[in-house]
């Protein structure tokens, strides 16, 4: 089994699982906002929950709790192996 349960993008990450960011897709303001919030390659992201109706998703990044909509989380690609945290 792979490190993050086989998830390729952040929206596929299961509750309670964590992964390292490999890259952030998209462009323009969307991508800039995600990067500026610290979702840069190498960062550890842990999924900790979801709102009713399955959206938005809740993640822990750099000790903060962020809510990202599924569509936004899908822009974040995960590495397939853990990086040093």
């Amino acid at each position: 089994m792979t490190f993050n349960g086989g998830a390729v993008t952040l929206d596929q990450l299961e509750n309670g699982k964590a992964g390292n960011i490999a890259s952030v897709a998209g462009e323009g303001p969307f991508r800039r906002r995600l990067l500026e919030l610290g979702l840069v390659p190498g960062t550890l992201v842990e999924r900790i929950g979801q709102a009713p109706f399955g959206d938005p998703l809740t993640f822990r990044v750099r000790r903060a709790v962020l809510c990202l909509r599924r569509a936004e989380a899908a822009l974040v690609q995960l590495a397939t192996a853990p990086a040093a945290v």
């Binding site: 323009g28 303001p29 809740t58 990202l68 909509r69």
Partner: peptide
């Protein structure tokens, strides 16, 4: 709306 993720921090 301007295209920017509407982000909520808890």
């Amino acid at each position: 709306d301007v295209a920017a993720p509407d982000l909520i921090e808890l």
